[in-house]
Design a protein around this nucleic acid. Structure first.
Length: 423
DNA sequence: TCTGGGGTCCTAGGACCC
DNA sequence: TCTGGGGTCCTAGGACCC
């Protein structure tokens, strides 16, 4: 039988914040989204106090003050670096692994010959904690979907000790399915939860026993795969070779609503620069670009508008100058005055490797490269992002995001390295 | 006052072809 | 008056994930 493990970091962002700020270990912690908008991670204590996932900050201010909850702006430089450390430990421990997200990793344990898989998982857990400082939970199942489900129960149950193996205890599978609400199944989101519950399907067990034809009709092949995985048939294999991205994007909600064209222009140019850096970093080029701007959907009564436009490159590129010029043309074409713009984004589409496919037989000419982009990238790699820029936008503006409680980049910036003093 | 960002996959429908 | 069948490609939108 196939044996998948899912290793999931507990309250990952909150755990990262606590790593270098021991004072936070005695307080409930929440981490906020960009712009300090809403809650995206909570320590166990914060969960117990009733802070909901995704709760907007302005709705929990009272709770924060009452219980002295520590509030952190999100610090992705820190989380990304800690994630790499965790993945390194996990990757070195198992025959093969798939990094699924910043805080999750699937392991393929088929070929692992150990007397007790549960003991092995406990050791892995302990090793990860000692070597990285991050607590993790491990779920083991015959499919990825069941490994996810096992992981969730491993986290919830005190007696599981952070590990639950359903492969070597097949009798537990039915009980696990019965106690899992259908909405907590991997692949069943909000809309499908409502639809399923309306039809009397409340648990993973009931979902697993729904008729194939019905599931196929209501939820397509995606839903059917989930049902089969719950029954123990593998539909999602371990993907240990990460596939190259097809699109990449830089989008932000502005720090405030903006009416002025020049301000939106600056935001859009800044995102163009950033997204171009991203594709160059991945060694890719883009075939097309898309720009969108939109008003605030939460502003009731205000006129709503969402505009977008796209352009195809004559020859795939990763050059900030070509990308920003194309974005600027789109921007001038779609811009409408008189709205309170709140968010914008630049997407690069049809990504590929340079020289992959010539646009036509007559278009084999290599992109002229004057070395400017790589020079800028090298300067920024050494001295920090944004050191060298193209002067496409003003440095500051209303559109810049708020991050009022940002922790230092303890592990990725020399000046932020924590120091310890012996007294 | 104040509600994130970055992805993937699938499907339906239209344009177009023979 | 009469108006097929089958295929591909593209795009927009909707579902999901973290």
């Amino acid at each position: 039988m196939a044996t998948f493990a899912l290793v999931d970091c507990n309250n990952f962002y909150a755990s990262c914040e606590r790593l270098f700020q021991p004072r936070l270990r005695e307080r409930p912690v929440v981490v906020l989204s960009n712009n300090d908008g809403c809650v995206i991670a909570r320590s166990n204590e914060a969960k117990l106090l009733g802070v909901g996932m995704g709760a907007p900050m302005f709705k929990i201010r009272k709770l924060v003050a009452e219980h002295d909850i520590a509030v952190c702006s999100s610090n992705y430089a820190l989380y990304g670096d800690i994630s790499e450390r965790v993945m390194t430990v996990l990757g070195a421990s198992a025959p093969s692994h798939e990094i699924y997200s910043i805080d999750e990793c699937f392991l393929d344990l088929d070929r692992l010959a150990v007397p007790s898989l549960t003991d092995w998982c406990r050791l892995l857990r302990e090793r990860t904690r000692r070597w990285t400082g991050i607590p993790v939970s491990v779920g083991v199942g015959p499919t990825k979907t069941l490994a996810k489900l096992a992981n969730r129960l491993a986290k919830k149950s005190a007696k599981a000790g952070g590990v639950l193996d359903l492969v070597h205890h097949p009798a537990w599978i039915e009980a696990a399915l019965r106690k899992t609400p259908v909405g907590d199944v991997w692949g069943v989101g909000r809309r499908w939860t409502v639809m399923l519950e309306e039809r009397g399907i409340h648990t993973a067990h009931e979902f697993a026993n729904a008729p194939d034809g019905w599931v196929r009709q209501r939820m397509g092949v995606v839903g059917l795969r989930t049902v089969h995985e719950l029954r123990g048939f593998v539909c999602h294999a371990l993907e240990d070779q990460p596939s190259p991205k097809q699109t990449t994007c830089c989008s932000r909600t502005f720090g405030a609503a903006i009416r002025e064209k020049s301000q939106v222009h600056d935001a859009v140019m800044s995102y163009s620069e950033r997204v171009a850096e991203k594709v160059r970093h991945a060694g890719q080029v883009a075939g097309a670009v898309q720009l969108f701007i939109r008003t605030d959907p939460f502003a009731q009564g205000a006129p709503q508008k969402s505009l977008s436009g796209s352009a195809t490159f004559h020859r795939p590129t990763s050059d900030t100058r070509e990308i920003s010029a194309a974005v600027l043309r789109i921007f001038d074409r779609i811009w409408r005055a008189g709205y309170d713009w709140r968010k914008a984004g630049v997407l690069l589409l049809d990504l590929g490797m340079p020289g992959d496919t010539p646009a036509s037989l007559f278009d084999r000419i290599e992109a002229p490269d004057d070395g400017l982009m790589s020079a800028i990238d090298q300067i920024n790699a050494r001295y920090g992002r944004g050191t060298a820029r193209l002067g496409l936008a003003q440095k500051d503006g209303e559109w810049r995001m708020r991050r009022e409680n940002l922790s230092p980049s303890f592990t990725t910036r020399w000046t932020d390295i924590p120091s310890a003093r012996l007294t």
